[in-house]
Design a protein around this nucleic acid. Structure first.
Length: 658
DNA sequence: TCCGGGGTTTTTTTT
DNA sequence: AAACCCCGGA
């Protein structure tokens, strides 16, 4: 149907009020960043505000929202910024493209995958899926070797790390091995062969892992001028947030996406680059800055933290950073940051519970308190204590929700609906049924694949398979194939009620909390209409927030998160726990000589605090057994609290009143 | 062919 | 916590 277009003139707010909302550094960055610009934004300097007003400014100049591309680090950040733009401008921002690199790539690939030899309905492998697949690829290769030879082959984790590194740096496997694991150079050929297996398997099941999504997008833009120009001409302005955590591939992608209009604004803080394990290159910032046409803006006033904390932050600016000095804006607070020495993890947990209760008594809301740690395991003792004391919390990053066994089981059922060739999910699903082991399931799956050639639908193909011994398995899988168009929540309910509830009760001591997780999964699924969109979003979106075991009536909870999960957030009271050599900085990272990144991580942690900062350490160090190994015993590891000048902090030790 | 028991290994951060 | 291996009994 042809519709006639009736053009009306858009009304935009006049940006006069910007001058009241922004300081001179921010205003300069908003108005004068044109062409290619780099905005170095210190912690708490109003970075989000600058991006928001930059977009508002562009809209006020008559740029249409659909011609703006905003790339952020998390989906949540994108949503928040778009919402703020809408509030500032009253412009309908729904056509503005905003999301993470992976969302943007996904959008492009869903449309053009065929051009580079994929089906448009490719599935996305999360890192767990990739690991499973790599394990199979490795074992397949091992079968061609003798037992002795097979023993020497590096593990799938190492191989994934190498190929991930190669992908993100655009290097060959050989170069990657030499760069990061030179001792494995004798196994170059083995690794390459395993890698080929892995590629083949991914292709066979029409899947891409996270690296593929970036690499394939780059490849598409690089090799197809027409497509590149078509997409790039749409985006008059490209803005990139958290630029210090972009990889080389990501940098190339945004360069291509901005190649027609050449307006590329990147915002970041090189001192806060904490994702090098994922290919992030803080060098991107320095390199970008070094181009002659790039305009540089610095915004360095700190609006977030009290001067006592800002002073400490200035001391902790990581060694290899673009020189900067943060200027405090807020007025003085009644206390300095605190370093607390506790005896062990239990005492640390007791102290934190007591501190939190004191803060509640002072009237601080739970939402304003956060506990940060280097790795999940460091929060376990504390979690138990909080549960006992009935202090409710939310985990921004637990062991990622979808990586737990029971959630993966349920998801495997849905995955075979979206992609009947998903071998890994078939294995997972069939093994759940008593009596079906490796041999039987291989037979079933092979027969199913063979049938798929003959029968038009998976339902038809599966129906043909004889299941005399396992009628329940057949009944359930057939039902799911038959109803695969239903909304995902109903399917999850079906799996749970008909089968998985009983399985949980029989096999897990902690069935209760796992049941709650599945209920949560159902809730999340209810927001999606199709299995495909649900799976896609779950693979691409950030952590799902997990509630504590204690069901709370009030929705007020303190936050527990890794430092990585705390990126971009802020709280009135921040407690950093287990700041011990080996825990934070992390022992494994130090072994790989990544002390710089640990420093940046600590800097990120400290800069999250608005009013009160507690750095808690234990005299005994950690209680985890494997830290008692030779590496930890042999060396004196750096202690972050050592280099903090005494006069900048208060020192507390624990005493007992009762 | 399946399953359970015992033993071992992993060793961080995540789109 | 959860995967793997090996082995012996059903």
């Amino acid at each position: 149907m042809d519709e006639k277009v009736f053009n009306i003139k858009r009304e935009y707010s006049i940006p006069e009020f910007f001058k009241e909302e922004l300081d001179s550094e921010q205003l300069d960055a908003v108005i004068n960043s044109t062409g290619r610009s780099l905005i170095i934004a210190g912690p708490g300097s109003g970075k989000t505000r600058v991006i928001t007003y930059k977009i508002a400014y562009l809209l006020s100049q008559g740029i249409k929202p659909e011609n703006i591309l905003l790339v952020t680090f998390t989906r949540a950040a994108a949503r928040e910024m778009v919402e703020r733009v809408r509030n500032v401008t009253n412009v309908d921002t729904s056509s503005l493209t905003a999301g993470t690199f992976h969302h943007v790539c996904n959008m492009i690939l869903r449309r053009y995958a065929k051009v580079i030899g994929y089906e448009n309905n490719f599935t996305i492998l999360d890192s767990e899926d990739a690991k499973d697949l790599m394990r199979i690829a490795k074992n397949e290769y091992k079968e061609t070797l003798t037992k002795e030879e097979a023993k020497q082959i590096p593990g799938e984790g190492v191989i994934l790390k190498i190929i991930g590194y190669a992908a993100n740096t655009l290097k060959s496997i050989r170069e990657a091995i030499l760069d990061m694991a030179a001792y494995l150079i004798d196994y170059q050929e083995d690794i390459e062969r395993i890698y080929m297996n892995y590629l083949e398997m991914k292709k066979k099941i029409n899947a891409m892992d996270y690296d593929d999504m970036l690499i394939n997008t780059l490849h598409l833009l690089e090799t197809n001028e027409d497509i590149r120009n078509y997409i790039a001409s749409k985006y008059q302005w490209v803005l990139v947030d958290e630029f210090q955590d972009t990889s080389l591939v990501q940098l190339r992608i945004v360069e291509f996406l901005s190649s027609v209009h050449k307006n590329l604004i990147v915002v970041g803080d090189d001192s806060q680059s904490i994702y090098s394990f994922r290919g992030s290159r803080f060098e991107n910032v320095e390199e970008f800055q070094s181009h002659e046409d790039v305009k540089l803006f610095k915004i360095q006033t700190n609006y977030r933290s009290v001067p006592e904390i800002v002073e400490l932050e200035n001391y902790l600016i990581p060694t290899h950073s673009i020189p900067k000095k943060l200027k405090p804006y807020r007025s003085s607070y009644h206390m300095k940051p605190v370093i607390v020495k506790t005896y062990d993890e239990l005492e640390q947990a007791d102290f934190i519970v007591q501190l939190i209760e004191n803060k509640f008594d002072e009237g601080v809301s739970p939402e304003e308190i956060a506990i940060l740690y280097r790795s999940h395991s460091l929060s376990m003792v504390l979690q138990q204590k909080l549960d006992v004391k009935k202090i409710s919390y939310k985990l921004l990053s637990g062991k990622r929700f979808i990586e737990t066994r029971h959630i993966k089981d349920i998801m495997a059922f849905l995955k075979i609906l979206a992609n009947p060739y998903d071998n890994i999910s078939w294995t997972r699903v069939l093994k759940l049924f008593p009596g079906i082991g490796q041999k039987t399931l291989t037979k079933i799956v092979n027969e199913f694949y063979a049938n798929l050639m003959e029968y038009p639908t998976p339902y038809g193909a599966f129906e043909q398979i004889k299941f005399r011994k396992y009628p329940k398995a057949k009944e359930i899988i057939l039902y799911l194939f038959e109803n695969s168009d239903e909304n995902p929540q109903d399917l999850i309910d079906y799996i749970y009620n008909e089968f998985y509830r009983e399985y949980l009760e029989l096999n897990f001591k902690d069935a209760y909390s796992r049941k709650q997780d599945i209920e949560r999964l159902g809730e999340i699924a209810s927001r999606y209409k199709s299995v495909e969109s649900f799976l896609e979003e779950l693979a691409l979106s950030e952590n799902i927030e997990i509630q504590s075991a204690e069901k709370d009536r009030k929705n007020e909870r303190i936050t527990l998160t890794t430092v990585h999960g705390a990126k971009g957030l802020e709280w009135k009271v921040v407690i950093i726990i287990s700041v011990n050599p080996g825990d934070f900085p992390n022992g494994m990272a130090l072994k790989e000589k990544k002390i710089d990144e640990e420093e940046r991580l600590f800097y990120v942690a400290v800069t999250r605090a608005k009013d009160e900062l507690y750095i808690v350490k234990q005299l005994t160090g950690t209680t985890k057994p494997y830290y008692g190994n030779s590496f930890y015993m042999r060396q004196k590891l750096p202690d972050f609290t050592d280099k903090i000048p005494k006069e900048l902090v208060e020192h507390w030790k624990i005493g007992y009143s009762d």
